[in-house]
């Protein structure tokens, strides 16, 4: 029992940091803890959170996926283009766009597994290539004229924005995959010890293929939501998304050296960043100063996380 509590606290230290952050903001700003404000934050973070979940999968294996921002842009552009210009219909277009995202994930995995290229380098290459494909496909111009079926994905149901439902759905599915399924178990195994996993009859290659496809699918889904929200596909959307996603995953307890990370952590990590931005806006901190504060909070959070883990040992 004691062991279970210990393991839980260790795996979910992001939640603790989230609470530590929410308390002063609630005290300092009367607007912070209101339903409307929290929904705004949730909408802003939901898309990054989906990408961060996928990123966490890659980080747990000891890899990283830098191509997520470009994949999001590519998927968004393809979906918008195929739906409007090619007249495929919204849903077939979306599915094809996700398939294209998955294909980039397969290319990443192929380079990493068969080409033995370090994930940082392999995904840096696809980051450039996918962005280039997006620019070629869009000719550098936004694609607009989306129908209601498409923009529905950024509308509201009741008072709750649809992307939040999508996040909850993605989080539930990935939670089961990562923390309950055999495949999830093997992701942790490969990240904790690749040779050990191989000797236990696990195929690290299959695990990596799965992981990079999941990461790319999450990024693709984020791209669709971004497109729906802007009512158009922007060729430069998703720039810097990979850094937000990595930061969120690490804040949520994922380790860059592999073996650690969780879906709950990825989501809480994104919320930490989102709530911090939101709080600073509410407190009317100038946006240039916000950057500095965010950087400092990131350092404090990571150090705090490290200290807590050491204490719990």
């Amino acid at each position: 029992m004691k062991q279970t509590i210990l393991n839980f606290t260790r795996a979910n230290s992001g939640l603790v940091i989230l609470f530590l952050l929410a308390i002063p903001l609630t005290l300092l700003s009367p607007d912070f803890l209101t339903g409307n404000n929290l929904l705004t934050v949730a909408l802003q973070v939901s898309m990054i959170a989906i990408t961060a979940i996928g990123m966490t999968f890659a980080l747990i294996t000891g890899g990283v996926d830098l191509s997520v921002g470009s994949v999001a842009a590519l998927a968004g552009a393809l979906a918008a283009g195929l739906a409007t210009r090619s007249g495929l219909g919204t849903y077939p277009a979306m599915l094809l766009a996700l398939a294209a995202a998955a294909a980039v994930g397969l290319v990443n995995a192929a380079m990493i597994v068969w080409g033995r290229i370090p994930p940082f380098v392999a995904t840096l290459a696809t980051m450039a290539a996918a962005r280039g494909l997006t620019l070629v496909y869009t000719q550098g111009k936004p694609i607009s004229g989306l129908d209601e079926q498409f923009t529905f994905w950024a509308s509201e149901l009741g008072k709750i924005p649809v992307p939040i439902f999508v996040l909850v759905f993605v989080a539930l599915v990935t939670y089961v995959i990562l923390h309950r399924s055999l495949f999830g178990n093997y992701i942790f195994a490969v990240g904790g010890g690749e040779e050990t996993s191989r000797l236990a009859g696990i195929s690290p290659a299959k695990v990596k293929f799965g992981v990079y496809v999941i990461s790319a699918l999450c990024a693709g889904l984020t791209g669709l939501l971004l497109t729906a929200r802007l009512w158009s596909a922007q060729p430069n959307s998703g720039t810097g998304l990979e850094l937000d996603a990595i930061a969120a995953s690490v804040l949520g307890g994922a380790s860059l050296s592999g073996g650690a990370g969780s879906v709950v952590g990825a989501v809480t990590g994104t919320f930490i960043v989102g709530i911090l931005s939101n709080g600073l806006n509410l407190l009317e901190v100038p946006s240039y100063n916000q950057q500095v504060i965010k950087g400092l909070v990131f350092i404090v959070a990571v150090v705090l996380d490290y200290v807590m883990k050491q204490r719990l040992k």
């Binding site: 393991n7 089961v176 309950r180 399924s181 055999l182 495949f183 999830g184 178990n185 942790f188 195994a189 990240g191 904790g192 010890g193 040779e195 050990t196 996993s197 000797l199 236990a200 009859g201 696990i202 073996g259 650690a260």
Partner: peptide, 28 residues
């Protein structure tokens, strides 16, 4: 050859975990 971030039980049954739901989930 053990995975430090995983539990004793997970390590013992690594690669042949008891399964649930058509073999997809781990019966922890």
């Amino acid at each position: 050859a053990l995975i430090p971030q995983m539990t004793v039980a997970q390590n013992i049954f690594l690669g042949r975990e008891p399964r649930l739901a058509a073999g997809l989930l781990v019966d922890t």
